[in-house]
C-alpha cells in the first residue's frame, strides 16, 4: 500500500505537504503539514501543546478535545488543514478567556481544583474545555442532566464523574452570581 508509484502521473492526487496558518490560543502559527496530519498531530507534536492528547484516534475518549470557534471537537478527527482560518483554543489558552489578569488559571480550572475533580489528569483538559463550552452556550446554570449529557464524550477512568459534575456546577453557579 505504498503511496508512491501509481499516483506519480497524477499530480493532483499526490500527498504534498502544504503550508497553513493556525490560530491557536490567540497566537498565529505557520506550519507545514501533510494532508494526513491530524489537528492532534500538529498541536501536540509540532506546536508542543501537551494538553491535547492522543487517547484513541476514534473520537471516543475526548482526551484530544479542543475548542474550534468555541465548540468542542476531537482533534484526532480533524485534518490540520481543516482548521485553517478558525479560532482554536486548547486548555492552556483558557485562562485568557476569563481568568483574572495575571491569573494562573481560569476560574473553571480553580473549581476543578477545589472539588478535587481529577486524579491522573489525563482527561482533565478535555473535560474542562467541554464544560466551559457548555456553560458559555447555556449562558446560565446548566442542570446536572445537561452537564452529564454534555460530558458524555469525555471519559474519565480514575475519579468517576461525581466531583467533575460538582466542579462544573460550582463554576456555573459562581458565574451566574449569588441568587
Amino acid at each position: 500500500m505504498s503511496p508512491t508509484g501509481e499516483g506519480e502521473e497524477n499530480t493532483v492526487a499526490r500527498a504534498e505537504p502544504m503550508r497553513l496558518t493556525l490560530q491557536v490560543n490567540g497566537t498565529v502559527h505557520d506550519v507545514i503539514a501533510e494532508p494526513s496530519d491530524t489537528l492532534l498531530d500538529v498541536l501536540h507534536d509540532r506546536l508542543g501543546l501537551g494538553e491535547v492528547r492522543y487517547g484513541c484516534g476514534e473520537g471516543v475518549c475526548g482526551t484530544c478535545t479542543v475548542l474550534l470557534d468555541g465548540e468542542p471537537v476531537s482533534a484526532c478527527l480533524m485534518l490540520a488543514l481543516q482548521a485553517e482560518g478558525r479560532e482554536l483554543t486548547t486548555l492552556s489558552g483558557l485562562v485568557a478567556l476569563g481568568g483574572e489578569p495575571g491569573a494562573e488559571m481560569h476560574p473553571l480550572q480553580e473549581c476543578f481544583l477545589e472539588e478535587g475533580a481529577l486524579q491522573c489528569g489525563f482527561c482533565t483538559p478535555g473535560l474542562v474545555l467541554a464544560a466551559y463550552s457548555l456553560v458559555e452556550r447555556v449562558g446560565g446554570e446548566p442542570s446536572e442532566e445537561e452537564i452529564r449529557y454534555e460530558l458524555v464524550g469525555n471519559l474519565c477512568r480514575c475519579t468517576g464523574y461525581t466531583k467533575v459534575v460538582q466542579a462544573v456546577r460550582r463554576y456555573a453557579g459562581s458565574k451566574a452570581g449569588p441568587k
Binding site: G50, M105, G121
Partner: peptide, 11 residues
C-alpha cells in the same frame, strides 16, 4: 493537581 488542571504536566 495544579499542573494537571493546567494541562502542563508532561506524560
Amino acid at each position: 493537581f495544579v499542573e494537571k488542571v493546567k494541562g502542563s504536566l508532561a506524560y
